[in-house]
């Protein structure tokens, strides 16, 4: 049977839901599922992994020193060594902020093919579906090689339990030998935007908000509905919110359950970042804005009237 290694992302010791979705995708094929864990794994986390179909939890035992643990080169090195020792056929990782700096390193070190940001993967044929040309084209890409790697877009697949028995093994890597790349410092910001790519609901604001004070309407609304906040490039370029909020071709690419776009016209480049949302709700005063023809619900009206109502009713 094929062996698939899945790079596990955790948050506060919990396995992320987006990671479980990725396991569900891998479990569709008849393969042995290995969880590759870099940040330590306790029994409850092992149980969760088993519930979704993992049969072997591999604790890679990366050094807890932050200069090593937070260095993508060190993380990729540990994953690469594990892939070789376990003789994995397939590697899955999230095409998340961290994944984008780790998975391609692993592919480069192993010198094997990779598709990032996959929306779906057919493991029988090793064909991945991904978007290209600023989200205007869906490409099916077939990988051939001893090992093939797929970076999966967060939220591309909803997690579905598929219980298995999992054993846990430890596998130390001969790390620390990182020629020429030292992590000097790290800044995890205020953490406010860490969850953008993985949020269920995103409420985003654009030029229609008019200034940074008004943008607080978006924040207030987000707080009430436990949503993440996004923004168009105009809102970022005007300095209303930091770049970490930008959704689009040159910002974050997101696939939430619901994307609520307020005062955003729906340019091609903005769409490139959110067109895979399950549901799009547009709030815009211009009936002819591009987004009004390209959403599931549109609310024609003044956001300065509608958002305060939303905040009041929530």
């Amino acid at each position: 049977m094929k062996k698939t290694g899945i790079l596990i992302e955790m948050e506060k010791k919990r396995v992320k839901d987006t990671t479980l979705g990725m396991i569900t995708l891998a479990a569709r094929a008849d393969t042995d599922l290995y969880a590759l864990v870099l940040d330590g794994v306790d029994d409850p986390a092992c149980e969760i992994l088993a519930q979704y179909g993992i049969t072997t939890v591999v604790d890679l035992g990366l050094s807890s020193a932050p200069e090593i643990r937070l260095n993508p080169a060190a993380r990729a090195d540990a994953v690469t060594q594990a892939a070789q020792k376990l003789q994995l056929d397939v590697i899955f990782g999230l095409s998340s902020a961290d994944g984008k700096d780790i998975i391609p390193r692993v592919a480069a070190l192993l010198d094997v093919p990779l598709v990032m940001d996959c929306l779906d993967v057919d493991l029988e044929k090793n064909i991945a579906r991904t978007s290209q040309y600023s989200g205007k084209v869906l490409a099916d890409i077939q990988l051939t090689g001893d090992v093939v790697i797929f970076g999966i877009r967060p939220n591309a697949v909803q997690p579905v339990p598929s219980p298995a028995q999992a054993k846990k093994i430890k596998m130390a890597s001969d790390s620390a030998a990182l020629p020429g790349s030292a992590l000097l410092s790290w800044d995890d910001g205020d953490g406010a935007q860490a969850g953008l790519a993985e949020a269920d609901i995103i409420i985003a604001g654009g030029r229609g908000l008019k200034n940074s004070d008004n943008f607080s309407l978006i924040f207030d609304c987000a707080k009430k509905m436990h949503a993440a906040v996004g923004a168009s490039r105009v809102a970022v370029d005007e300095g209303w919110v930091p770049y970490a909020f930008q959704v689009g071709q040159t910002g974050e690419k997101v696939s939430p359950q619901v994307y609520i776009a307020c005062g955003i016209s729906g340019s091609i480049q903005h769409f490139a970042g959110m067109k895979t949302a399950r549901m799009i709700i547009a709030v815009n005063k211009d009936e002819n804005a591009a987004i009004m023809a390209n959403c599931d619900y549109h609310v024609q009206g003044d956001l300065f009237e509608i958002l305060p109502e939303l905040i009041r009713q929530l």
């Binding site: 010198d111 094997v112 093919p113 990779l114 598709v115 064909i127 978007s131 290209q132 989200g135 205007k136 084209v137 869906l138 490409a139 099916d140 890409i141 077939q142 990988l143 051939t144 090689g145 001893d146 090992v147 093939v148 067109k275 799009i280 547009a282 009004m292 023809a293 390209n294 959403c295 599931d296 619900y297 549109h298 609310v299 024609q300 009206g301 003044d302 009237e305 509608i306 109502e309």
Partner: peptide, 26 residues
């Protein structure tokens, strides 16, 4: 390289969305 990636098909990412209008007062 020993392995390779090959594009097997391209399709336009068309939106299959059918916008519904939400009307009334704010």
């Amino acid at each position: 390289a020993a392995g390779f990636a090959k594009t097997v098909s391209l399709t336009p990412l068309v939106q299959k969305r059918h916008p519904k209008k939400i009307t009334g007062t704010p």
